[in-house]
Design a protein around this nucleic acid. Structure first.
Lengths: 201, 201, 201, 201
DNA sequence: AATGAATGAGGGTTCATTCAT
DNA sequence: AATGAATGAACCCTCATTCAT
């Protein structure tokens, strides 16, 4: 059992890295086998197909995010704190498993319809959760009136754009990785919160 | 000349559609040739490689945006109006050539390093233009102090996230396509414009 | 192991024949696979490329000659006998593996620069050994003074010209195959040995 | 007419060079067309096929040698002089049209059966002529007893080996080109002539 | 559980040649 | 006479996957 887990992790870990570096389509099973120092037969013993490897990696990554959101939901934190936490989670996962994040950015469209649907569902779930927060904020008067779901997508877009840039290797990327979370959380809160005073002005 | 142009357009048009649907890597030259009702040889007569087809499509699409921005620059519109126009353009092109847009969202990471560099360059130009607008806004006091280029990337990220969702086929997508432009333009303006009064608070 | 060796031999054997008949460039991998009743994939499992097949054939053939020469070297035969043996070996290998010999005559110029260099190196080794014999002959006074390496090349040229003609299917070829070895050995010895008495004349 | 000739020469000249450099199979029609600054259509207007280009080049080169031999035959020169002339011709043609010579060495086996037969015929003719000279020499006692045709092939082999080496670009090649003809002519004569005194010894 | 030899369809690309202009 | 766009078979090679061991 432990042995099994070890081998599977070795495979998914290697695949994650290679897929992130060269892309799913461009990474061959032979490359995975050789890099992971495992026989091709062994891979097929644990995974039905190449698609399944990607699926397993993505699935795990998605679950991680879902678990986080569920935990967050139960804590009843104030709105501003929740936003901060969501942004922070994004960057934490980015640093902790940058390959998985990179892979996530790349292969959002490529995989099998099943997996693609799964990914879009999760994305929708995250967006829905954020929209819910916004909706509540509007109700309590903390947030200016707006289309909640659309605004949620907009916020996720901002976070993603900055994350993506933060994955680079230059100084700007380093700066983004370091200051991105606070700056974004502050900006977003500002933006949601303050808008309401502006209209009359 | 006209004949040549026709054939090349037939090829790029078909390729654009297939690449957008199945992905660049998963689309074979044979598939392009058969779908476009053209011989493989003819394709290679006009394009050096499969990469060059993608390159040409991307190049044209990005040039379209550049041309628009240049025209916009010459009109001397007020800042808020310019932002609105840029967001609107994004959505217009999205509706007019949804395949190209979809393709652009996919293959930003996949193609050969050369092509990737080219795409990033052209993308950088668009971002640069937006940054320039922001810079001017800061100078006139209309925009709160910020790093213009990074803010530009953030804005493009917002627009992209909403655009991407708008490409779907459900109700939400329709809603985003319809209300996205105004809502985004308003949001972005708000965000850029308002921050400055907040700091002292 | 045995299985592997069998398959590789089947491939090289078939390739040897086809290359010799139609030429390296004109022989396709499909033709080799079909003739050898082996899948294309199997060929590529054992050989990195088409070039490598040729390389392996050539290498083996040249090694065969090298092994012979090494054995010969250890026997300490008189010079005239050694020459006779070398010529005889040439013709024996010609009869035993006429395809390989034919192939050798063709493709000396065609293959990739890398392979060409390899072939020339191995050829050079054979020539070097002959040159060594000549050098020893000069030292003992049995051979007239001459540039040993160049004389070696000349000798190999003589043998090759006759061999090549002997590969045909007519009467002359049969005659050459039968009388070539003795006649050549006699001629070469004569040529090397006798020159020295002439100069004074 | 003159125009035609010019264009055809331009094509054969270019092809000769390219075939000699990269080999017949590896040289494409497009490469010939571009290098010769001629359209592909124009080539096909003057030559039925790629094979025909090679055929025309070879044919011309072969005829050149035949004409020489016929002229030589009519002159009734002494044996030694004839050998010298034949060797000299070989080297003259080598220097004058080194590409054609190189090509001749390469593509002796590759071309169509028709052309291959033609080449072998000429080779046989040259050998036959040399054999005839030897036969006469034996009759007059100037040459030691030997198998004339076999000896002729041997001689041609020597000349070829040295020629081939002389086509290189190093110092040895230069030396061979310069001294090869005399040295070879002397060696061969020596060899043919002197052998007879040896046997009794 | 684990191996890696074997499969063969399909990949992108090149080629000599044709033919409408 | 001359052009070069168009053809499509064939090129070498890679691939995910299977299966006997």
């Amino acid at each position: 059992m432990t042995r099994q887990g070890r081998l599977e992790e070795k495979i998914t870990g290697t695949a994650e890295r290679l897929f992130a570096q060269k892309g799913f389509a461009a990474t061959g099973m032979r490359a995975i086998a050789q890099t992971a120092k495992v026989s091709i037969g062994a891979i097929y013993h644990h995974f039905k197909s190449k698609d399944e490897i990607l699926e397993r990696i993505m699935h795990e990554e998605l679950e991680r995010r879902q678990r986080f959101l569920e935990r967050l939901r139960g804590q009843g934190l104030p709105l501003q704190k929740q936003i901060k936490q969501i942004v922070q989670m994004h960057f934490d996962l980015l640093q902790e498993k940058s390959d998985a994040a990179r892979l996530f950015f790349r292969e959002r469209f490529d995989p099998s319809p099943v997996l693609r649907a799964k990914i879009q569902d999760l994305y929708g779930e995250v967006a829905g959760y954020v929209a819910e927060i916004i909706r509540e904020g509007i109700a309590t008067g903390e947030v200016r009136p707006c289309q909640p779901l659309l605004t949620a997508y907009t916020i996720l877009g901002m976070v993603e754009a900055v994350s993506l840039r933060a994955l680079g290797k230059d100084e700007t990327a380093a700066l983004f990785m370091k200051e991105g979370p606070q700056e974004l959380a502050r900006s977003i809160w500002l933006w949601l919160h303050l808008g309401q005073e502006e209209k009359p002005a």
